[in-house]
Design a protein around this nucleic acid. Structure first.
Lengths: 215, 215
DNA sequence: GTCTATAAGTGGATAGAC
DNA sequence: GTCTATCCACTTATAGAC
């Protein structure tokens, strides 16, 4: 399954095809104003062609959104491999750092940043996107962290608390940062999500760690 | 400043004026689908009048939204008075309980629930609503909690940590719950926000408390 | 692969009769 | 205060010439 939009990932390809241009321009506009608020006219104008030409590359406006979401899902990285995880768990400090880095870097390429913003807008009207968000970006990480904390307790590197509660304590803050950046402050600052989130996540991890580490 | 929509607060007034009907129907539809996705035609149909009659009561569609937001702001409760706060601070457990109750109950009347949902949708397109949210519903509570935690530290009822970090640790979870309920799960469960949030906030408060109380 | 022209529908809003 | 009738801008999408 080769993705014809893969070159748009870099964003600095000087010879983009029209289809790639449509993809990039649409992502740009959708992530700013939401899917409904962008017209095919507007996309065409920005690309430099007529509306009707759009339909030579995508069969409908919705198909552009589908292509964007497909691209996003194919880019979603999974975390580090099992064996490495087991070693990391011995020292929770390191583990938090790796976890935070994974979380933040997954949101840090220009295109994925835009798609994160787009997702947060479409959560309200688009059931497919909402279900995807809930399953892949909320439940999966929460369950993952619950398992991690359970193992840490078995290894006696952290105190015994409810691992589910602990998973929410840790991960809900990340969701809050996501919300604050992509919804409330999007485009207001030139800083990337990475620069903003790193220090805050570090403070948060330190707080959690102080409360669960075995002294 | 008498609010002509105040009777709509109860929702069980059998003799609603047309203006009140328009207000209630609009709030219903806006909170489900967002402002842009609802047409004046649709509001009129639901109310049982023609489109043009709407303009006899509100000068534009936007004016209905303004009326809703005005109503919401007038309903926003401030917390308990200063003197009571000072006493409560002596026992952090109680304080968290009161804080959580205030937060949850402020979101628990039928109309305010709908407006909370509406706000979360309009955050993306409506700058006025976004600024209101950031200032009144994010920064103000965070600053409030920072002051509270600072005082608690002065009274030596909790450990010394960065009060700003602690304020975010406590309050960001509430924001996360808000997001989960009003954005991700709205209308999927018959439970009210109160029923859902109460236990989760209790677990959260207990976790925070365990980590900052002086043993 | 892009264009012009156009279909067929929906949007917010107004004029004026009753 | 509600109605009918209408305006006009804008929407997605298609047909067919080049």
């Amino acid at each position: 399954m080769t993705n014809k939009n893969s070159s748009s990932k870099t964003g600095n390809n000087p010879e983009k095809t029209t289809k790639e241009k449509i993809f990039d321009v649409s992502l740009d506009l959708f992530s700013q104003k939401g899917f409904d608020a962008v017209s095919v006219r507007e996309i065409a104008r920005e690309v430099g062609i007529r509306e009707s030409s759009i339909y030579n590359h995508y069969k409908s406006k919705e198909a552009i959104l589908d292509a964007i979401m497909e691209y996003f899902m194919s880019e979603l990285q999974s975390g580090p491999p099992e064996e490495e995880m087991d070693k990391l768990m011995e020292t929770p400090e390191l583990f938090f750092e790796v976890g935070a880095r994974d979380f933040i870097e997954g949101m840090n390429t220009p295109n994925t940043q835009k798609i994160w913003r787009l997702i947060s807008i479409e959560l309200y009207h688009n059931e497919k996107i909402r279900e995807f968000f809930k399953k892949e970006l909320l439940e999966a990480p929460i369950n993952g962290w619950e398992k991690i904390f359970t193992k840490m307790m078995e290894k006696k590197v952290i105190k015994e608390v409810d691992p589910k509660v602990l998973a929410y304590e840790y991960f809900s803050f990340a969701l809050y940062l996501y919300f604050e950046y992509f919804v409330l402050n999007y485009n207001e600052s030139m800083q990337t999500f990475m620069e903003v989130a790193w220090d805050r996540m570090a403070d948060h991890a330190e707080f959690i760690l102080d409360s669960i580490k075995i002294h």
